[in-house]
C-alpha cells in the first residue's frame, strides 16, 4: 500500500483512501461540440500509457474528496510529486537534474 501526499490535506495518507482517475492534463475542449472526429478520438480515446514518468489524476475519495494530479513512475510505482487540480505540469521535478 502506497502513501500518497494529498496536496489539499497537506500530508501523506494511505493509498486506500484514494482512487486513480486516469491520465492528467487532458482538458475537455471548450468547443467540444464542434471538434473534428480526429480531435475527439485524440481527446477521448487515445492515451499514451507511458513506461516511466506518467501524469495522473487521483481523487482523495475517502478523504477531502478532491481530485488532484500526480507524477508517478509507472515502472517503480513511486510517486514523484502531487499537485492541485488545475495547476500546470510542473516544469521541474524533485530529484531531477539541476
Amino acid at each position: 500500500m502506497l502513501l500518497i501526499h494529498c496536496p489539499y490535506c497537506e500530508e501523506e495518507r494511505p493509498e486506500i483512501e484514494f482512487r486513480n482517475a486516469g491520465e492528467a492534463h487532458i482538458a475537455r475542449p471548450s468547443d467540444i461540440a464542434s471538434i473534428s472526429d480526429a480531435d475527439f478520438e485524440k481527446f477521448f480515446f487515445i492515451r499514451d500509457n507511458t513506461k516511466g514518468l506518467v501524469y495522473e489524476r487521483w481523487r482523495h475519495v475517502h478523504g477531502c474528496a478532491r481530485f488532484f494530479n500526480a507524477v508517478r513512475d509507472s515502472v517503480s510505482d513511486k510517486f514523484v510529486m502531487t499537485y492541485k487540480a488545475g495547476e500546470p505540469k510542473p516544469k521541474k521535478l524533485p530529484g531531477a537534474g539541476k
Partner: peptide, 13 residues
C-alpha cells in the same frame, strides 16, 4: 456522484 464531482472539480471549477 464521482462523475459529477469529477466534472465540477476539474472541468467546470
Amino acid at each position: 456522484m464521482n462523475h459529477m464531482e469529477d466534472y465540477l472539480q476539474t472541468e467546470f471549477p
